[in-house]
């Protein structure tokens, strides 16, 4: 990272004040919120991550990149207490939403159902963000879905698969060329 990029990679890791999103209150009355993350939760997080960044014909997705292990580590060691709470409540919200919408456990949903569920959550997250901006709220609340999405993106694109297969990586470039040809479809450099 360069000096001039003084803003850290991910806003959620800057430790700034965060308010709870109203979105996460939806499912609170049905299931108990976790106080810690289990090995089973890693499998759940793998599915959440894989739905956000799936395996494609190009390369493996978030599950193969061990996104569940990564997200558990972030929740246990890197997120602020408030972010962790949003994370934990968010897991329950996702589980409850799956049961409410499909009468099935999230883990047993078909990929297309998981995606459908998440698309709704993403719309809700984006709407809340837009509303906050319109109301000029100084600190935009973090929506639990946005948190899972950001973690998946960061975790996947800092994994070996994300870096070397989804994007391009040169450990030792050996030269700098300020201008090369680019055609649509060429991969992005994984690191800057």
């Amino acid at each position: 990272m360069k000096r001039r990029e003084a803003i850290k990679n991910l806003a959620i890791f800057t430790g700034g004040a965060i308010m709870f999103s109203s979105g996460l209150l939806v499912g609170c009355n049905s299931s108990e919120v976790r106080i810690w993350l289990s090995d089973d939760d890693v499998l759940l997080l793998d599915e959440i991550g894989e739905t956000i960044i799936p395996k494609t014909k190009e390369c493996e997705g978030a599950k193969a990149a061990k996104i569940g292990t990564y997200m558990k580590l972030m929740a246990d060691e890197c997120l602020t207490k408030k972010e962790r709470q949003i994370f934990l409540v968010g897991l329950t919200t996702i589980e409850d939403a799956a049961r409410e919408k499909f009468s099935t456990d999230f883990m047993d949903l078909k990929p297309i159902q998981k995606k459908e569920l998440f698309m709704e959550m993403q719309s809700q997250a984006e709407k809340e963000k837009k509303d906050s901006i319109e109301k000029s709220i100084a600190i935009i609340p973090i929506h639990y879905f946005q948190l899972f999405k950001d973690l998946t993106i960061h975790g996947y694109f800092t994994s070996e698969i994300g870096i070397t297969e989804a994007r391009r990586y040169e450990a030792v470039p050996g030269r700098y060329n300020g201008c090369i040809d680019y055609k649509k479809g060429d991969k992005a450099w994984a690191t800057s």
């Binding site: 739905t51 956000i52 799936p54 494609t56 995606k115 698309m119 993403q122 993106i153 694109f157 989804a166």
Partner: peptide, 20 residues
């Protein structure tokens, strides 16, 4: 490379973020 706003999750998101 990490701007995901307005991009749908799934393969769209993955492909978008794999390109500059």
């Amino acid at each position: 490379i990490n701007k995901a706003e307005g991009v749908n999750i799934g393969s769209d998101l993955k492909n978008t973020l794999s390109e500059p």
